[in-house]
Amino acid sequence: MSNWERFLDTFFNTKVMAKYAPDIAYGMLITVELAALVIVSGLLAGLALALVRSLGFRVLNLPIVFAVDLFRALPPLVIIVFIYFGLPAVDLSPSAFVSTWLSLMFVLMAFSEEIFWAGITSIPKGQWEAARSTGLSFGQTLVNVVLPQALRLTIPPLTNRTIAITKGTALGSVVALNEILGMASSAVSNSYNPSPLTLGAAAYLVLFLPMVIVGRWLETRMRWKR
């Protein structure tokens, strides 16, 4: 067997791949569900916190900033392990799926809050003043004038963050979540062949490459002339 054949047999073994493809497909399903939940809940929670912060109440802002800094500083894996292995101590036993979802949601919430907040504060004061001078309330100004501009500015950094954090679904494999990497790893152990990992990598590409492309498209579409 030549080196090249050995390489193909190790990483691109079609027999092994065919056998474990259904497992990887199942893992993809879990990953998609998890990713969708993380993105929707994380971004909504981040936007909600940024809006609350824009009201400018110190009593609300301090806990928000604290929580945001905490979840930006902790590695997502630590949060997953803490929730999955720590919460049972207080009689809460979230599943591997819920633990991974909550952890990534908190992390995305924290990072997206910072990005939304930066977007809101980057809108010039004159925009607020012009709108308020015509009688628009704080809330109407925020919704009609500031947010539409702020959200456009946030799209590029937000897409990058969202993709980076959503890929963290692979961390769920540590708490035995049957997502792509978890399924691929057990397939590797069972078959004594790493080809399922190649399949897993392909699965990630299929899921995340479109996200990257959509992000790029949004970025160009949302641009406007000043």
Partner: peptide, 20 residues
């Protein structure tokens, strides 16, 4: 104040139009 401001138009040095 939002009611009252309808009766008071203001024009700024830097226009402050909504760019979107």
């Amino acid at each position: 104040i939002n009611h009252a401001r309808q009766r008071i138009g203001m024009v700024f040095q830097s226009f402050n139009l909504y760019p979107h």
